[in-house]
Design a protein around this nucleic acid. Structure first.
Lengths: 242, 242
DNA sequence: ATCTGTCGTTAATAATTGTTAAGACGAGGA
DNA sequence: TCCTCGTCTTAACAATTATTAACGACAGAT
């Protein structure tokens, strides 16, 4: 028998769900899962029987390229608290990418069996969960856009702008310090840059008094400047109107 | 009363639907829509009350960047016959990007009202449609990967490899000539390259006897070479097992 | 305590790609 | 017919970014 978790808060993108629907699905999350930074949460091709909701920390979607996937890593998405990390495994049964913990993370799990039982009689809840994955898709499109159209400085600034916006949305506050725990090579993997060039870009952002990234921690000194350098428009995030 | 269309074939990604579910939803497509190459099918922010299924031709998802969106265009996705172009508008109500016809296209429409009625009593069909949008999301992730990790030659080759695979999947055959109707700047918009550099890349592919792109038409001379140059692994397309 | 590996930093160099400009070509209109 | 427009093509040049290398700092392992 799985242990019962404490009630979960309706944070971040979960606010796309109406409160009534949230209270309907929240009790179905019956187990907690912890992963330490660097651990693999799930692997490409592995059949999944449950989906995970991220409560705390950051996870990344990673794809390995090259012959027999032995080459470089690349980060194609980052998830923040309130995101489902695995929800697409419910309809698709299997994922085409790895999921790795960037920071230490805490997640809540719901089995696909129970999900199916609930969704079968709640089409509107189905539609709301579907929406969550569609917002992820919109974010993926933006990552393609970022890597396709922006120069290095703007790319990194834009990634930071997106992440702080999404992290703020999770907490419901606006902060100025964020623990991302990404190494400079990680940022390069996400933005399509070499680690060396990420280092140059971070120095530029620091010298522009825009933001400082050190030891996995992002400190935003001038958010307006960050958004300007990033040409950041959060429309694609489909943030719930407050 | 909308005109009734002729029965639609279950092509391309629609084969993710079981035949039983397809026959359930197929009659709901009650109107046809045609667009000429270059026309805008729907615009960012415009509320949509129906979704479109692509029957013939190619459409692109386009995002404008820069202050007040007056800058460059970028293509973040291309859809081929058998794809829904608009299905995410059903849960999301509104799109964050424009949809433009690349070639002349023919589409079938289903109203969200009827979709809601059908899906409300068919949770398994809901899940299958959800899957279709999740495959699109996987393709988006691959586009981010392509623009982030690959050099120009590989990027264009990879885009071509993806498109011919998806177009073949639509027709159920393997061909060697494909009408894409993309200009060289279009390809640049999709791959994050300048039009001039696309021209250089196309010459390389031609001189390698790999494939020839001219007048909007792609002729694949050596598919193995194309897939090799592209480092192409179609796993992410979640092709239905045949 | 020492070794080992990863990360961060910087510089020098090389490769890739963007920009600008100009001419060729073809389609379609006056 | 001639003109115009958009696309394709190429060249020359400039800007961006990757690569390699070297070194210091640090953490974990033995």
């Amino acid at each position: 028998m799985p242990e019962k978790t404490a009630p979960l808060a309706q944070i971040g993108m979960l606010r796309h769900l109406t409160h009534a629907h949230w209270t309907r699905i929240e009790p179905e999350f019956s187990t907690l899962r912890h992963c330490a930074a660097g651990e693999t949460v799930s692997e490409r091709g592995q059949p999944l029987s449950q989906s995970l909701l991220l409560l705390d920390g950051i996870v990344g979607r990673r794809i390995r390229t090259g012959r027999n996937h032995s080459g470089r890593h690349h980060l194609v998405a980052l998830q923040v608290p309130g995101d489902f990390v695995d929800l697409h495994a419910y309809p698709l049964k299997v994922l085409d990418h790895d999921i790795v913990a960037i920071t230490d993370v805490r997640m809540a799990a719901v089995s696909h069996t129970r999900l199916k039982a609930v969704l079968g009689s709640h089409p509107e809840l189905s539609r709301q969960l579907w929406s969550l994955t569609l917002v992820d898709a919109a974010i993926h499109r933006h990552w393609a856009l970022r890597n396709g159209t922006m120069r290095a400085l703007q790319r990194v600034a834009n990634l930071f702008a997106e992440l702080v916006t999404r992290l703020d949305e999770g907490h419901g506050t606006t902060g100025d310090t964020y623990l991302l725990n990404l190494t400079q090579p990680h940022i390069g993997d996400a933005c399509g840059l070499s680690g060396v060039h990420v280092n140059r870009v971070l120095r530029s952002l620091r010298e522009a008094n825009c933001c400082t990234y050190a030891k996995g921690r992002l400190v935003v000194q001038d958010r307006a400047a960050l958004n300007r350098i990033a040409d950041f428009d959060p429309y694609y995030l489909y943030l719930p109107e407050t």
